[in-house]
Design a protein around this nucleic acid. Sequence first.
DNA 1: TTGTAACGGAACGAAGCATTCCGTTCTGAA
DNA 2: TTCAGAACGGAATGCTTCGTTCCGTTACAA
Lengths: 215, 215
Amino acid sequence: MPNPTGNPAAPLAGRRAQAARNDAVILEAARAVFLDDPKAPIAAVADRAGVGISALYRRYAGKEDLLRRLCHDGLRRYVAEAEAALAEPDGWQGFAGFLGRVVDADVHSLTVHLAGTFTPTEEMGRDAMRANDLTVALLERAQATGRLRPDVVPQDVGLLLEGCAALRVPDPERTRQLRRRHLAVLLAGLAVTDPPLPGPPPAAGEFAWRWRRAE
Amino acid sequence: MPNPTGNPAAPLAGRRAQAARNDAVILEAARAVFLDDPKAPIAAVADRAGVGISALYRRYAGKEDLLRRLCHDGLRRYVAEAEAALAEPDGWQGFAGFLGRVVDADVHSLTVHLAGTFTPTEEMGRDAMRANDLTVALLERAQATGRLRPDVVPQDVGLLLEGCAALRVPDPERTRQLRRRHLAVLLAGLAVTDPPLPGPPPAAGEFAWRWRRAE
DNA sequence: TTGTAACGGAACGAAGCATTCCGTTCTGAA
DNA sequence: TTCAGAACGGAATGCTTCGTTCCGTTACAA
């Protein structure tokens, strides 16, 4: 009985409304806390959300459940941004804008840094493959414009994002600015063909181990 | 009595020699372990070194002592590399080569990632200031050649290094290769003046908080 | 008025970890 | 050959942290 008033459009009120709002508050708090420290105790999330621990356990079976949810949300965000970027007419603009938005959203910390702390679902596996396909498409389209150096491979994208995500200061907005600055250097370096990139480029399955559960 | 044979040039032998060798083995193990995980238990260091825990405590008053030593060594390495780079005739080559060697040596993980886990000594403070001065000199010299974009500031160097240090895979040599690849993109982006870097550049004392002890 | 969804937070138990302690081994000088 | 002690291995200790459970309370809905 999701809406006891019988009016499907009426906003929830009273305790039910508070509970619904808590769903969002808790998720947001969890995002902030685990972004800051992937090993943070679950009590820190409750504190940040301003709720008790039981409010958390009412919604998630355990810490692993919450982590999985956060990671999956990040993955979905990545896919959504990539799809939006593919709709952009200019291939290079689409690629560059995509990176900027993904860096801003801190998607990388949500996915890679949390990987290994839970066993992924099958749906996450599918979404990850889709994310990979979209990345390839985005990259090839950008390279087709001639503005993106031809010797970057899809796996490089993840590494670029990781480099940006590593930058972190206490103030989130300042963090965003510094990452954008870092990304600007990287993009300038990607828009140039000389000198070519050194070393064996990262291979397709080279980072799969990240998703294996830490033993 | 460092050399009981009385011969100053004779190599140590027997138990004393083993102990001297252990000094190096332990330090090397600590480096590897804490590079991999700054929060690693001290027992992991002993395991990796193939010694017992007491061999560690014989040499260092506690974990904090060991961490401080490791960090200070990294700082000294940074200073040494910077001095060597200043001796190089070409300003741009000196700068680029410096970054490469510092990335290879993983100095950044040794310093910033370990910061906050111990109270620094005064000597470390002096060395840090010296490192800063050398970085400024290196940067200005590179900019004077016209090959380095004029809108990078000394604090950007630390951020570049941090981005590279974030990349890590199980195999150390592969890690080095991937970081070099990342650095190549960054250097290409630094060698170009357009577009200018966005956002307020990092300020002088903006990262001092990293060195305050975690409470 | 009352059943109950939602909650707050103390309590519990397990795990991890820095440090200490003690018994053992081996060196090197007498 | 003897033996004091440097060097060491690793179990024991005591403490902290953390995930999860449990129970009493609140306030809405009927």
